[in-house]
Design a protein around this nucleic acid. Structure first.
Lengths: 190, 190
DNA sequence: CAATGAAACTAACACTTGTTAGTTTCATTG
DNA sequence: CAATGAAACTAACAAGTGTTAGTTTCATTG
């Protein structure tokens, strides 16, 4: 683990600002000011505003992709696989909640890398859909509309970044376990 | 139901554009071009770009607030109340998915009305939290972390706008029912 | 048919945007 | 101590921003 470069600091700061106002509303002067420098100085470290967004989003998207692939290849039940997916999202969102905001809200501002991002995203959804479908086939999961189950789980997990900074969610183990319970068992007592 | 004014058309078109690129990335020239006119002409109908955002968001936020108040005042079980909340979200998101995108993603760009919006939002969350807490107290709902149940339900409902335009969700009755099942009963078969 | 008024237009404004070019600062190193 | 190189700076740019002022178009109406 090498020490953090100036470029890394800029990207981290940018992610924080992007979370608050969105990519388009953050100017290079805003970012420079948050870094304690002038806008032009940023360009000693980064190539463009666009590149910052790209690095934030693509890094995260690839983390999700490789994380899910590992889960997919394991020999667990499909319910257990979903629990692992919950853990994956909690872990990544805990490590980088700011970046997750860009991933969720600013992906459409990717330029050259937009198609690549969409490919990763589509594949991710498809693999998760298959886990659910397998679960239904093997009688682990109720025979309800698969798209709705997928939607419900995925949107909850995708929004994690906005709740995780609150103090009651500092413990990723506990959060993952509680979230799994709610998503899988529901909230009904009977 | 009076006929749609030019102003209404502008706001509707703006909501569509805001959904695709976000408030900050949509210019008045983009909006004008989508309306088939020049940017300056927009100002015959609207006061400012900011006013468009305000009308989109505040209208929706107030719809949610009054909708939830009615549910709260009814004499149903808390589980039934949650089912009604699901219906409310499905109904509003079906009617105005574009506006919902602004409500979810661009509320931070409200200026004078930001505090008012945040008040409505906080109250909404608090009332829903109370329904869940009541449900737990009355043994209708499992005694799990209330914040997590609230989070899970609310984020799913808040993201509805992005899935509803897909054809399989055209039937609001069916969608509400299926969503309620998944959110309340979970996905587990046992 | 003259007057009205809604709704478009052209032209321009002051300011902000991302980015580039070239320069300065200064601790580290041969 | 001279040379290096990372990291800041100033100044400027071309393009784009929201918005205003004043004007034109033209169907509707008294």
């Amino acid at each position: 683990m090498k020490t953090e470069t100036r470029k890394d600091e800029i990207i981290k700061t940018a992610a924080k600002l992007f979370k608050e106002k969105g990519y388009s509303a953050v100017t290079m002067r805003d970012l420079a000011s948050a870094m304690g420098m002038k806008a032009a100085s940023l360009y000693n470290h980064i190539k463009s505003k666009q590149q910052i967004l790209k690095e934030i989003i693509i890094t995260l998207a690839e983390e999700f992709t490789s994380g899910l692939r590992q889960i997919q290849q394991s020999e667990k039940s499909n319910i257990k696989k979903i629990e692992e997916v919950v853990k994956l999202h909690v872990k990544i969102a805990s490590q980088n909640p700011y970046g997750m905001a860009s991933l969720n809200n600013d992906w459409m501002h990717l330029e050259e890398k937009l198609d690549y991002y969409l490919e990763l995203r589509t594949n991710y959804e498809e693999e998760l859909r298959e886990i659910i479908a397998e679960g239904v086939k093997k009688d682990e999961i109720i025979d309800e509309n698969i798209e709705i189950m997928l939607f419900s789980i995925l949107t909850t997990l995708r929004s994690l970044y906005s709740w995780i900074p609150k103090k009651e969610y500092r413990n990723p183990e506990k959060l993952s376990q509680q979230l799994s319970t709610v998503l899988i068992q529901g909230i009904n007592k009977n």
